[in-house]
């Protein structure tokens, strides 16, 4: 869990949700790349982030891609956030005694527009939050920032500002994450993704 490093956070707003991550890929203290993808799109109303061991982030995103494409073809519709949360949790629990070292964060809007965020531990114990979810090596720092900045019923622009400040200031206090950030805000109209510049040291 502390080998590659990550900072991932998702927050609820008023009729919107946001999910953000850092962009570093490193092996312990050595940074290898600053454009590593940790947030993945399921469909425009549902995104998820994976924090933890980079190899498992990649493998698990591939497993989800497989399961989600089969789901979509079988059902003929997009998966709902709640259903995806349970799919992710049972996928993780399948490896109860040899787990994927990954803690997913899920953010999306339900079909009726209700915001949804949830997290889980590496064996799929779900945590349905009413406010925000954090994951990665900067988890503690993210909790501190989110606890002090987040408030209920933020609009999309305010939510973007709050989640960006939470991410940037948390990752600056974590040696293993940072080197740029990416934020996706999901509203009923669609998702917008913005890249953040940050300290590169």
């Amino acid at each position: 869990m502390d080998y590659n490093g990550a900072a991932i956070v998702a927050m609820k707003g008023k009729n919107c949700v946001a999910i953000a991550s850092d962009r570093r890929f490193g092996v312990q203290a050595q940074t290898v790349s600053t454009n590593f993808k940790k947030i993945f799109e399921v469909h425009p109303q549902l995104y998820y982030g994976l924090g933890g061991l980079a190899t498992d982030v990649l493998t698990l995103s591939e497993i989800f891609e497989y399961k989600l494409s089969m789901y979509k073809l079988r059902e003929g519709r997009d998966i709902s956030p709640k259903t995806f949360a349970n799919l992710a949790a049972s996928t993780l629990y399948e490896r109860r005694f040899g787990p994927w070292f990954v803690e997913p964060v899920i953010a999306g809007l339900e079909k009726d527009g209700t915001p949804f965020v949830c997290g889980m531990d590496l064996i799929g114990a779900l945590n349905f939050a009413t406010d925000f979810i954090v994951s990665g090596t900067a988890k503690e720092q993210l909790y501190g920032m989110a606890e002090s900045l987040w408030e209920p019923d933020l609009g999309p622009e305010d939510l973007f500002e709050i989640i960006s400040q939470t991410l940037l200031n948390a990752q600056d206090r974590d040696a293993l994450s940072g080197w740029g950030g990416v934020v996706t805000v999901i509203t009923p109209e669609g998702a917008t993704t913005r890249y953040l510049k940050s300290r590169m040291d």
Partner: peptide, 13 residues
């Protein structure tokens, strides 16, 4: 059809 979908999805991953 299910078999084909599985094969195509597996190739992609």
């Amino acid at each position: 059809v299910t078999y084909a979908r599985q094969q195509a999805a597996r190739y992609r991953t």
